[in-house]
Computed example of a mutant assay.
Amino acid sequence: MYDDATWFPVCAGLSALGVVAAFFAFRRRGAAAGIRLFGWAVLPMAIYLTGMVRLLWTVGAALVKWVSGFVFSPYVWSGLALFGVAAICLPVAAAMRRRQAARAGEVETGRASTGTRAGSGAVGSSAAGTAGTAGSGRTGTAKDAGKPKQVEQGKGPAKRQGTKGGKGKEEDPLAEFEDIDEILKRRGIS
């Protein structure tokens, strides 16, 4: 079936026609068109000289045989039907898994947030009560726990017992911030 003597004139003729067409394309449409057509023109001879004609002939013959057996074979059509079933089943199963995982995630986050809310309310209210009663003897509420307390100088228990240098001397807790306050006042910020 395959014969070198048959393919040489075919490839040489195709290349010669391509070179002539490239010459005319070069004159009419410019250098880019001529060079592009010349590149296509030399391919048939390159294929023949490298021995790829035999490879292309073998591949082409096997492809034609497969297609002709494919069209008339009931086994092949049943195989195609199974490919179709697989192509439908696999994405559907993946989508179902994603949906189940999303539902499980929603249920878990719902359980966790419900448990956290109930627990944080109890802890928050006891913490607020403790914070409110720590220094002043007042009872605090949950509303007061989130608000910062204003510190006024000269009012309330602003001084505490300190043990600086081993002496029982009272110190102002804001004494450490006097330098910062002075700098802010000099710059007109405070």
Rank of each mutant, 00 (worst) to 15 (best):
T116V: 13
F177M: 05
D4T: 14
F83A: 03
G34L: 02
G156W: 04
F38A: 11
R186N: 05
A62N: 13
V64W: 08
G18V: 01
R98G: 06
A112P: 01
D4R: 14
A145W: 05
D172Q: 04
L82S: 04
R187P: 00
W40T: 15
A94M: 12
S190I: 10
R99L: 02
A175E: 02
C11A: 12
C89Y: 10
G124T: 04
A134M: 11
F72C: 11
E106A: 06
I189P: 03
F72W: 14
L80E: 02
G154L: 04
P148R: 10
D3M: 13
L90M: 09
T141N: 03
A41S: 06
Y75F: 10
V10T: 07
C89Q: 05
A104P: 11
G34S: 06
A104D: 06
Q100R: 13
G121W: 05
A175Y: 01
A46V: 15
G60W: 14
I180T: 15
A142P: 01
L63Q: 12
G162P: 00
R160F: 12
A127N: 08
T130I: 14
K159D: 12
Q100C: 07
K167A: 15
T139E: 09
G30T: 11
C89D: 05
T141A: 02
A122W: 10
A12Q: 14
W66H: 10
R160W: 09
A86R: 04
T50P: 03
Y2C: 05
A118I: 07
L56H: 11
A112R: 06
P173V: 02
